[in-house]
Amino acid sequence: MELMTIGFTQTSAEHFFKRLQTAGVKRVIDVRLNNTSQLAGFAKAQDLAWFLRVIGGIDYVYEPLLAPTEDMLAAYKKEKGDWGEYERRFLALLEQRRVEDKFTPTLFDRGCLLCSEATSEHCHRRLVAEYLRRKWSEPVAVRHL
């Protein structure tokens, strides 16, 4: 099973959609807390679902259980919090929510976790992918597009 991740900031729509198509993504799994912001541009939820379907024949699913809480996000982003602390809190949240039991690996096979961050280093989509890889018995290869 392969699970991919992607961010939409600091990229053009063309580059974003080409990366998804080239990777053979079947489903984009949106893990953003806020997926309707005007700042999202081409990645606003309603527009994104249409673009994915028309441009690449790719499904779109919104999974807020895989997003941080408003408080966590604000403490890290707005208050310029420590990444290590954010990571610990977010992983504890995934554990508390028992997300590994709420989703089947088949939903994520050839799926791509979407968030806004340009790279995966300091983004919760990487944490979600690594968490699921550790929790599921089925081998999961993670690739960041």
Rank of each mutant, 00 (worst) to 15 (best):
M1V: 06
E2F: 15
L3M: 10
M4V: 09
T5R: 07
I6R: 02
G7D: 07
G7P: 03
T9L: 06
E14W: 02
F16A: 11
F16K: 07
F17A: 03
L20Y: 05
L20E: 06
T22G: 15
T22D: 15
A23C: 10
A23P: 02
A23E: 08
K26Q: 11
K26N: 09
K26R: 13
R27S: 00
V28G: 04
I29H: 04
N35D: 11
T36Q: 13
S37K: 15
Q38T: 10
Q38R: 13
Q38M: 13
A40S: 14
K44S: 09
A45I: 01
Q46N: 13
Q46A: 14
D47N: 09
L48N: 05
A49H: 13
A49G: 11
R53T: 07
V54Q: 14
V54H: 12
G56H: 08
I58Q: 02
D59M: 00
L66P: 05
L66T: 03
A67Q: 04
A67I: 05
E70W: 13
L73S: 01
A74D: 03
Y76K: 00
Y76A: 03
E79D: 13
G84D: 04
G84L: 08
E85G: 00
R88L: 06
L91M: 10
A92S: 13
A92E: 12
R98E: 15
E100V: 04
E100N: 14
D101V: 12
F103S: 02
T106C: 00
T106E: 14
D109C: 10
R110S: 14
C112T: 09
L113V: 08
C115W: 01
C115D: 00
E117F: 00
E117N: 10
T119G: 15
S120T: 14
S120F: 14
C123N: 11
H124R: 10
V128F: 02
V128H: 01
L132M: 09
R134M: 06
S137R: 15
S137Q: 11
P139V: 01
V140H: 02
A141P: 00
R143E: 05
R143P: 01
